[in-house]
Amino acid sequence: MSEFAEVLAALRRVRGINPFFALDVGRPDGSWSPGTALLEGPALKNTIDAIAARYRAEEPRVAASLFFLSYTARLLSPLTAANLPVDVRPENLWWRHHPVNGLSVRIDEPRLGPPAAEALEPVVEAIRSVTPVARGLLWGNAMSNIAGALKMVVRARMLTAEEAEERGELLMSAPPFEQAGKFLSFPGEVGFVRRSCCLYYRVAAGGKCGDCPLVK
Rank of each mutant, 00 (worst) to 15 (best):
F21M: 08
E118R: 11
S77H: 13
R61I: 03
L79W: 08
R111W: 06
L120A: 04
A53N: 10
Y55C: 05
I51Q: 04
P115Y: 15
A53E: 11
L103N: 11
R27D: 15
R61N: 10
A37K: 08
K45Q: 08
L79T: 06
G35T: 13
I107L: 07
V105E: 02
A52I: 02
A52D: 01
L38E: 03
S65M: 03
A73H: 09
L75P: 05
A64T: 05
W32I: 00
L44Y: 03
E59K: 14
G113W: 08
L93M: 07
H98R: 11
G30I: 00
R96W: 02
W32Y: 09
A22D: 08
E91H: 08
P34N: 11
L39P: 05
D108H: 10
Y71R: 11
S77G: 09
F68W: 07
Y55W: 15
P19V: 08
L66N: 03
I48P: 00
A52V: 06
S70D: 15
A57P: 03
D29P: 01
R111I: 01
E40H: 12
A81Y: 14
L75R: 15
P78D: 03
R74G: 04
A52H: 10
V86M: 07
E118I: 12
S70E: 12
D24Y: 13
L44M: 14
P90N: 12
A64W: 08
R106D: 00
A37Y: 01
R96K: 11
